[in-house]
Amino acid sequence: MGKDFYGELQLGILGGGQLGRMLIQEAISYNINVHILDPDKNAPCRKLCDHFECGSLSDYDTVFNFGKDLDMITIEIEKVNVDALEALEDKGVIVYPQSRVIRLIQDKGLQKQFFKQNDIPTSAFQFISNRESLRNANLSLPYVQKLRKDGYDGKGVKMIHTEDDLLTAFEEPSIIEEIVKFQKEIAVIVARNDRGEVRTFPMVEMEFNPQANLVEFLISPSTYSFEIQQKAEELAKKIANDLQIVGLLAVEMFLTEEGDILVNELAPRPHNSGHQTIEGNFTSQFGQHLRAIFNLPLGNTDARSNAVMINLLGEEGYEGLAKYEGIEEILAMEGVYLHLYGKKYTKPFRKMGHVCIVNVDREIAISNARKVQEILKVIA
């Protein structure tokens, strides 16, 4: 990149939440200068980075001016101004993942088109322009409606079971998808650097909170057959190569009741389904993302141990200054690692942290994780 890697490169991260926070923790080991842009003046990254700027991620001028004097820009959230990123690329600032990749993944409709054009298995879908056009949908009820843009962590998703549900469906442009009967939701995180080296983390199994529709419980590595795991990891590699992405890509998938794999959604950044890699794998997803964007050799992704990750969510019925119950009790347990995200205020289902539980015995790891879920609470 024209400069000594160590200590001189100025890295900008769009987004200052928990993913940015954990990226900074890894970047410190490489002596990288990190600049953060986030709309929240109390963002989790604000006290950890070399430079913090409070500003809109969707405003062209704010994003462009933030990045124009930096060497590289990366993201921890997709909802950013892509036009500004394209202008920064034209100016010579390196943007990874590339602006064209972010633009595609910002739009769930374009994602689905990409899957179809590249022979990537996915559920049947249809584009919807507004609520009224749902009445002429080709898919039979029930189906899932997803906003094409701005949906994340379960937001922007509605189940349409009956004609009555059409009255409260999204009005904005969306897609509808056939409901997939699956036995498990799975994910693979893949990294690709600029020299074309590609490496996947082992496939993981996920359980979702039924109310918040976000990952609540994750088990790594999977115990499904080698054939299923290999198929999932090869799919992730194919997508990374088809996109020619530089950086990290999370590929969320369904394992159907028939044993097929369908790709659900993509995230071009570190992801909730990879938090267990910090303690559970030889290289963490955050370290791998930095290796990929700086075109360094990709690290060993093998699992060190069985690892279970649970999201620490704000309890229902509590909103205000966060208080944590049960920390001493869970930290007295062997193989329990706590990560708090530095968020001052809690509200129902807000991601406040995560806990990783490791053990050489998979069943003990799962059992201990269930105990942590019962003990550790975020209240106000």
Score class of each variant (00 low, 15 high):
F127D: 05
N295L: 02
R269A: 00
L104A: 02
K68Q: 14
D69W: 02
G7S: 11
L262K: 09
E329R: 15
G12F: 07
H339G: 03
A307F: 03
N209H: 12
F66R: 01
V144Q: 02
I261F: 11
E177T: 08
P297W: 09
Y324H: 00
K158C: 01
E26P: 02
I228P: 11
G335L: 02
V336G: 07
V336R: 04
G16V: 09
A369S: 13
K377G: 00
D61W: 12
D4Q: 12
F115A: 07
E257W: 12
K237Y: 03
T346L: 05
E171W: 15
Y341A: 02
G16P: 09
A191V: 12
D260V: 02
D90G: 03
Y96D: 03
G154W: 08
G17E: 09
V246P: 11
M203Y: 08
I28N: 08
I310N: 00
G151N: 06
K371R: 15
P97A: 03
N33K: 15
L248E: 11
E234P: 08
E216N: 14
A250C: 12
F226C: 02
V360W: 04
M333Y: 03
K149V: 08
Q244N: 15
Q211E: 08
D38R: 06
D242Q: 11
D153N: 12
T283K: 06
E172K: 13
S367F: 14
R291Q: 10
N241M: 10
N281E: 05
N65F: 13
S99V: 04
V251H: 15
S133E: 14
I219P: 13
Y324G: 00
D260F: 05
R131C: 08
L338I: 02
L37S: 07
G154D: 00
T277Y: 07
M159R: 13
H354P: 02
E316V: 15
S225A: 08
E86H: 14
G342S: 10
S56M: 03
I120K: 04
I179C: 03
I175C: 09
G274W: 05
I77D: 00
D69M: 03
G317V: 10
K237Q: 07
Y96E: 08
E329Y: 11
R131M: 07
M352F: 00
K231I: 01
I94D: 12
L85M: 10
V372Y: 13
M352T: 00
G16N: 07
E76G: 05
A236M: 04
Q229K: 12
F66E: 06
